[in-house]
Design a protein around this nucleic acid. Structure first.
Lengths: 336, 336
DNA sequence: TTGTATGCGTTATCAT
DNA sequence: ATGATAACGCATACAA
């Protein structure tokens, strides 16, 4: 491994001079700096992030925390997209990203401890359970954090516009003549609460009454549970004309259940999803859904986190809402 | 930040004693060690991975490299699954993972340089293009590496059993009476070469002749290109009875194209996919496909990489093939 | 059994 | 403009 000491020797200068030249310090003679840089390149010098981090107290590394109790958090397309965009934006700004988890090897640590252990300059958090004390500890620590889809006081958050998204979907369905809307929701997270509240509120403002039995619980990203909820809805004496699913993937469970009953989409039943993942627009019929701006959310999360890291003095917590867009698709039929 | 120096002071011992006690060194009095550990916990001490890494030359951090020229590498379910399993196995063994990429911030580096910069103890590589000189440089460097779905000399690799997988699919289709098999393949990677060769070989051994026009190029994970390939197949005077798709996701493109032509699956056309991602079994009809053992591949990759890192002396490169399994699904019709 | 001294690679402070 | 030196937090060879 070639270090600044090697370069210093080769150039006949001190290590300090090399460090300055390589970091573009002003108090170094231009031609000397040039000579040093050439020599560094010639020797194949690479800065050592570890040594630098130890010295300057900044690792240029940000932690990313995906916590999903149902396992495989990363493998949901919505999360993957966020991860990918956080990653590329962070890299663009000179930061690497490392996953943060509990219990690394033999040592048992919580998220905060893990982040400290790795000297993360900050952390992006995407969690299904923001009540987890370990998450709260990290968020309320001195480590700069940005949360996704949940707001803590004094912590920047990036929010999907769940309220408007759901309102947009309900209105679209309403405009197509539907008055009997059923809603299958995910676990009772804050996201679900927002969507459910928006669903009810929008229905109310449109003069639609939603019977209690039209609201069914299921599990996010779990087609089976949404399939069961669908079956329950189909067993009702007075069936809905349109079913809202917790997310696009969950719709697939409903789809097969409907098919099993010989019910055609959208001829006999209209449906809408949520998320707008690429998959939803590849299906036939294309799913009517609401696209969350996952890439933009990830990008903003990385950008704001790094801004906070680099300018802690002028920083104020922000709650940014990223707008999505209605994807009309073909699964909502216009009825009279 | 509380360091071993603080603990040393609080306990009235030297920093060395603290270090030894915390690392369970044998040459320290049990009761002293106990006292030190208690004090460490009381003070909320956390080891500093950066300082330790600088000292011992090991970062307990492994790099993971996903390179997919078509962008968003992580967001394909197959890759996500591998990432998730590499991550959890590595963490179980005491390692964190960091993404490695080109061009981090202002500095332009290749993969090798990035890995060195971060002092990665090793790297897991999943690439679509193993001819990329930057990848070759990393693989042939002194950094321990494990490759997925590609074999380099003197480098451990984890391979999906593409040859057997394709053979299994062909035989299954054959047993269901099909003799006119079309094959839509992805980009000409080594994976594609193996699958294509296995397809042709198995067909030959079963006495099936595959006309040139039954072999169509497309792009992995790109439903549109597979849709176009499907259309081309449908325009043939002598249509195939079964179409092989490059992967499960690509099948969706074919599905909508078939539907557009009023062709029902599997009544009028049989199809098979590849990958066996969860999605494929949620679709109706369930896709006939071959499941690659993504979780197992990731786990093995992490396990073998860390074994190599920790026992470089007794280590030999291995090429491990992870077996998959036929998912029969419902998209291959039995014909006479 | 415990402590002292040293160095990992870098940067920052302070002389020169 | 340049260099000597110390320090970041830790682990280890060696001395006591």
């Amino acid at each position: 491994m070639v270090t600044i000491t090697d370069i210093a020797k080769a150039c006949g200068v001190s290590r300090a001079a090399v460090s300055k030249a390589l970091n573009g310090a002003p108090d170094i003679a231009p031609k000397t700096a040039e000579r040093i840089r050439e020599q560094a390149k010639a020797l194949g010098y690479l800065p050592n992030a570890t040594a630098r981090a130890l010295k300057v107290g900044r690792s240029y590394n940000i932690g990313i925390l995906f916590s999903d109790p149902t396992g495989g958090g990363i493998s949901h397309e919505y999360f993957s997209q966020i991860l990918e965009s956080v990653k590329s934006e962070a890299e663009r700004l000179g930061y690497d990203i490392t996953f943060i988890s509990k219990d690394i090897g033999a040592m048992s640590m919580d998220y905060y401890e893990h982040a400290k252990y790795r000297n993360c300059d900050g952390a992006v958090i995407a969690s299904a359970d923001y009540h987890d004390p370990a998450i709260v500890r990290l968020v309320t620590s001195e480590i700069p954090t940005v949360t996704l889809d949940y707001t803590f006081d004094s912590c920047t958050s990036i929010l999907s516009d769940n309220v408007r998204g759901m309102e947009t979907l309900v209105r679209y369905v309403y405009e197509n003549g539907h008055r009997k809307l059923a809603f299958i929701h995910g676990e009772m997270t804050s996201v679900t609460q927002k969507r459910l509240a928006s669903f009810k509120k929008t229905c109310a403002s449109l003069g639609i009454t939603v019977p209690q039995e039209y609201i069914r619980p299921a599990v996010f990203h779990d087609p089976r549970s949404s399939g069961l909820a669908t079956r329950a809805l189909l067993e009702l004496a007075d069936r809905p004309t349109c079913i809202f699913y917790p997310d696009d993937l969950s719709f697939l469970g409903g789809m097969s259940e409907l098919e099993r009953h010989g019910i055609s989409i959208p001829k006999d039943m209209s449906v809408v999803g949520y998320d707008g993942i690429p998959l939803s627009q590849v299906l036939r019929p294309r799913l009517t859904t609401y696209r969350q701006g996952a890439e933009q959310m990830g990008r903003e999360a990385a950008r704001l986190l790094i801004e906070q890291i680099e300018h802690p003095d002028t920083w104020l917590p922000q709650n940014i809402t990223v707008e999505g867009a209605l994807l009309k698709g073909d699964t909502v039929r216009s009825i009279d």
